[in-house]
Write a protein that binds this DNA or RNA. Sequence first.
RNA 1: GGCGACAUGGCCGAGUGGCUAGGCAGAGGUCUGCAAAACCUCGUACGGCGGUUCGAAUCCGCCUGUCGCCUCCA
Length: 494
Amino acid sequence: MQEIQIFNTLSRKKETFTPLNEGFVGIYVCGPTVYGDPHLGHAKSYVSFDVVVRYFRYLGYRVRYVQNITDVGHLTDDADEGEDKMAKQSRIERLEPMEIAEKYTYRYFRDMDRLHVLRPDISPRATGHIPEQIAMIKKLIDKGHAYEAGGNVYFDVTSMPDYGKLSGRTLDEAEAGARVGVSSDKRNSADFALWKRADESHIMRWDSPWGEGFPGWHVECSAMATKYLGETIDIHGGGLENKFPHHECEIAQCEGAHDAPFVRYWMHNNMVTLNGQKMGKSLGNAITLEQFFTGSHELLSREWSPGVIRFFLLQSHYRSTTDFSEKALESAESGYLNMTGILDAIQGTAGAGSGKNDSSGVSGTPFDLQKLRNGLHTCMNDDFNTAKAIGLLFEQLRPLKSVLQSGKTPSNITELRDFLEIFCGDVLGIWHPGEAGEAGSALPIDGVMQILLDLRQSARQNKDWATADRIRDRLAELGITIEDGPGGSTFKLS
RNA sequence: GGCGACAUGGCCGAGUGGCUAGGCAGAGGUCUGCAAAACCUCGUACGGCGGUUCGAAUCCGCCUGUCGCCUCCA
């Protein structure tokens, strides 16, 4: 088994990963609040953890990947003020709150599917786990970590001596830095809500020992992570901006309730920025994935495919910020097409059958697959360095292009193809051979094109350039590009 | 103000003290009826000032700048 180094945000250093249970990895990642379309920032987070999960599976671990869907209306502003986000959106769209949740859950999965993000094993909904959350709150009250005040329940942060260990904050600082005055119900300004009393206007409400209300934001993750992964889990992931207060509060709740360490390895992905500013829903500068895929945003000059977006994100490390610009996307696209071009060429050569090209001369020189494989493992084992891995793929695979073009075939091309199918397909998720052809499979386009290419070839042999160029130009008008190469002509759909 | 990151060649972006990251763009070349595409070759960069060291982009200190969190947020 490979030794994986993970940067643990709790200890702020890389640590060797050892699972709680041999051969098994339990991972929890904070999922979206479903009141709007997912944007590029969501993609960075979920693509990053997608690769983490895929790599663990590749190494032979059994992984249980849990990612919540937050469908409870949390407040838009301060913990005690502002409007319920779900209710607000439902008013805007004139839909039931649960219609909003269903709609955006559906759209979230649709966009993640397009990005080839594998679905979590469990996607628990917060509203489906109200009893679990109430049970946890009760336990915290019983153990003296929480108190009820006027239908609200708050976590008493002074009951946890190490509160703040993840974010590096102390209670003194939290109190001194508190911007909002102490809420009348709270004993301490740093205390956070576990349960909120619902006033008359609040639509999403549940019965509880403390009256009708709704759960606090942080407790859903604690309750659901515990239910599906146990009191101590291997990995907890999420966006950096959730380190405080969300993850800090999760730790307090779980460790307060269970007296056991909550998370062994905390992983936080960095932000996507736009002109140096964080891309975020509340900042109003987020470009949704749908907008990328359709090109319908004022900052976008055209559409960008999911494959390009994924490749673009994986070209930087998950702990680095990814600065978005169309120029950066454009170079990612060129690189992506270049990479898939190499992979397709390998696939094409290997798929053509080992015997076919033998007469033209198999070089016989095998590709150094071991070197590539080991190199990629080294990259990935070092805190999932996908950027370095992609660099290595370019470096090692590029010389193969000229070899293949010269008609030679490394003796182990089939093994190489098989490995790349697994590594670039199953692990990185950036190559899906065969997928592109599905759309036009109803028509025998390849056969029709071959007829045209043959006709054009005869024209060229007769030096009838007018006819040859006419075929090429007319096809170009239809979005079909003809490219003449030494081994004949090929076509591409644009 | 507190806590925490980051500053790399035209752009994006890795980087474990000494050995070319990589990609994009650009330049030259090969091929080609033309075009396009392919392929080959080419860039010695690490915010500033000190320090440690035989040697620092990489370690330490200071400075400058940018960003994140401290309120919902991937």
